[in-house]
Design a protein around this nucleic acid. Structure first.
Lengths: 244, 244
DNA sequence: GTCTATAGTGCGATAGAC
DNA sequence: GTCTATCGCACTATAGAC
């Protein structure tokens, strides 16, 4: 009962508010690259892009991007090799597109979510929950970001590295502000940020484990919040956030 | 200075005590599989096995096991394709050997290290430090364990899963004992074990980050210990372990 | 035991019909 | 815009010399 109620104001509400689909991300990509793309009609291009991306995420998570053949990709997406090469000039371009467009989307939504919150404690809570909820919503993308980094050409390896550091920086900036305001007691901000990031990452790297144990993202989020706060919050705020 | 002293009783001492090389692990493999291996002389087989394994770990960490060609592997290891196939009947057998032999070694050493420690707090500390030190010593192996799971055939996917759960179980068993003895205050043992595991894993998954920041494994270990203890230890033991 | 040379397969990418 | 057919290449694995 409590879990259901929490679900409604937690991940359920988040999903409804951001309302993000693979097609949305592909539409952004299409509009940002109209000039250079071969296919010109949005109504044609966007669903096909989404089909290729969905198939890539599915097959990559099963066997890895490198081991996924483009023949299998096409048969999974219901289109032909010819069609694929009308959208992407190489297998590498497909990989880079998913990395770049996905990371940009995550970065934008994360920033939007915490932008208006000033106080460190609620800001930290929303940052943590938003990241966990986003990785739940875009689970396959997050998994792909991490696992398929080394398949990127060297020039593009900066994309996931910058994203890792960007997210960590959001956390450490909040920790610094909180320490300056006297609400957090943090000895080592750099490492505290790193281990918080590690806990967020575990949610999408080990989904098999949490699914098996029937742990929901809201349960995990509440636990991680509590664990972190018991380590860094100077005095426990009785009603400092949106938790029951 | 403090760091140097800690180094000597920390990772430095660990490395000297366990004294583990790639050749040692290959020797174990050779002796356990003498009957079925084609090459019979230990003095010949072990260095060659080590050369193949070292080359595999190096190239895999750069491009991934699947993308690593056996030609490149042979040129890196200084031996030929013919020699490689005298030791391994397929690329898959090489992968499985590294996974199986490596995980077994880790499991054994981890068990040895904590076996004799009864009290939950020091036992937890040694478990955490031993895992971090082992992943430092065998960094490429640990990275390989995680990144190359999906390249295993389905029948062998249980190896890394069991290892993940085995390590986590070591932690949660200590937490349970500590709670029963009243030294730990842990609400959710399952999730606490999971996030501790996540923090241990971050050390070898993000070595690039920690290297860049010049964080040593001993600094990371001390930090993680402190972070965890501030969340779960009921009253701080002033001299509960081997920390200064 | 280790080598070189090669067989056989399946890949990414392209050409040209419709 | 999307298809089918095919090219050339790089891969794993093997054969046979030494």
């Amino acid at each position: 009962m409590a879990a259901t109620a929490e679900q409604r104001v937690g991940f359920g509400a988040f999903r409804a508010e951001v309302s993000l689909t693979v097609e949305d991300i592909c539409r952004d990509y299409f509009r940002e690259n109209r000039a250079t793309l071969k296919i010109k009609k949005e109504a044609v291009a966007v669903p096909n892009l989404a089909a290729f991306v969905n198939a890539t995420l599915k097959l990559s998570s099963a066997v890895g991007f490198d081991a996924m053949s483009l023949r299998d990709l096409c048969s999974e997406s219901g289109l032909s090799m010819g069609a694929l090469y009308a959208y992407f000039s190489s297998k590498d371009e497909l990989l880079t597109m998913i990395q770049r467009q996905g990371q940009a989307t995550v970065k934008r939504i994360l920033a939007e979510r915490i932008d208006h919150i000033r106080d460190p404690l609620p800001r930290l809570r929303v940052a943590i929950r938003s990241h966990l909820y986003l990785s739940e919503l875009l689970h396959q993308w997050f998994y792909f970001f991490f696992m398929e980094t080394k398949n990127l050409k060297k020039q593009n390896r900066t994309i996931p590295i910058e994203s890792e550091l960007y997210t960590e920086r959001i956390i450490t900036d909040i920790l610094t502000a909180g320490r300056d305001e006297g609400v957090f007691s943090v000895e080592n901000i750099e490492l505290t940020g790193a281990v918080i990031k590690a806990m967020l990452q575990d949610w999408y790297l080990k989904r098999w484990k949490y699914s098996q144990r029937k742990v929901t993202v809201d349960e995990y989020a509440s636990f991680v919040e509590g664990f972190i706060e018991s380590a860094i919050v100077r005095e426990r705020a009785p009603n400092g956030g949106e938790r029951p």
